[in-house]
């Protein structure tokens, strides 16, 4: 009992030690940033703003719409709408496609060439096509995000299903399970960790694509805000946009992590 408590306290101490190290690295990073910008004044704030100016801009952007026509929350709301639309469609199509491609070799032969052809094309290259196919509304931007999500989620699902051990499939079939039953009760549960990783990777991809998506006919959005600030000598707003993308991506990733824990924990307890 006492041994358990001492192991626990050692683990806690180690954990808090790691947090302190991380905090120190963060503080040193911010200090160096401040030193070379606002501290020594070696670089003009119009070229590289210091942390104080960036934090001021970050907070003022919650109520000031200049110079890009909207507040940070309005931009964030617009970007979230596009990202989540693309993400949901990507997941809804990518997961079934990955499963079917991995489970049915003939379908894999049929779909793979097209998938491999589309896979390396970056989102930004799709913009002219999206305008023609889906116009300039929310859907076209969502589709640019969808393409990056779709690729990540399909590949992870495909790999996850393919990792099902042959012996498990044989056992299932030996006990009289149908192909579909084996898929749903053996292969998909096996693929769940990979699938959850795919969901996380796809979320990251969705956030990185938002900049490209908002090049397409925008009036609001974090990507739009960054793009507008590029030519206006407002690098502080660009960094605010980057911070907003980072924080939002981390929060969404954390939420997904909670879901992952819940889904995988349930699966493990059943097993």
């Amino acid at each position: 009992m006492n041994e358990d408590i001492s192991i626990d306290s050692v683990q806690k101490r180690e954990k808090s030690g790691y947090i302190i190290i991380s905090l120190i690295s963060l503080v040193i990073g911010i200090f160096l940033w401040w030193l070379f910008t606002e501290g020594l004044g070696t670089i003009s704030h119009k070229i590289m703003p210091g942390p104080i100016r960036v934090f001021q801009s970050f907070f003022s952007k919650f109520y000031v719409s200049a110079p890009d026509g909207a507040t940070l929350l309005q931009h964030l709301g617009s970007s979230l709408q596009i990202t989540l639309l693309g993400y949901v469609i990507g997941v809804a199509i990518g997961i079934p496609l990955g499963i079917v491609m991995a489970w049915y070799p003939k379908f894999d032969l049929f779909a793979r060439p097209v998938f491999d052809l589309l896979r390396p094309i970056p989102g930004i290259a799709w913009i002219p096509v999206m305008i023609v196919l889906f116009g300039i509304g929310l859907l076209s931007k969502g589709m640019v995000v969808f393409l990056s999500v779709f690729v990540a989620i399909t590949i992870n699902t495909y790999t996850g299903i393919q990792q099902t051990k042959s012996v498990h499939k044989w056992v299932s079939h030996t006990f009289g399970a149908s192909n579909i039953y084996t898929l749903f009760h053996v292969a998909i549960p096996t693929a769940l960790p990979m699938l959850m990783t795919g969901l996380r990777v796809a979320l990251g991809a969705a956030w990185t694509t938002i900049i490209a998506a908002e090049l397409l006919a925008s009036t609001k959005g974090i990507g739009f805000m960054i793009q507008q600030s590029r030519g206006l000598f407002r690098p502080d707003i660009i960094i605010v946009g980057m911070i907003a993308i980072g924080i939002t991506g981390s929060v969404l990733g954390w939420l997904l992590g909670l879901l992952e824990k819940r889904v995988l924990k349930g699966r493990l307890s059943k097993e």
């Binding site: 305008i131 116009g135 397409l216 006919a217 009036t219 793009q227």
Partner: peptide, 17 residues
């Protein structure tokens, strides 16, 4: 006002947007 580069805006306008 919808922000698009000149080329894209023209293309979209021709497409009926």
């Amino acid at each position: 006002q919808i922000h698009m580069d000149h080329g894209q805006a023209y293309q979209a306008y021709v497409a009926g947007e």
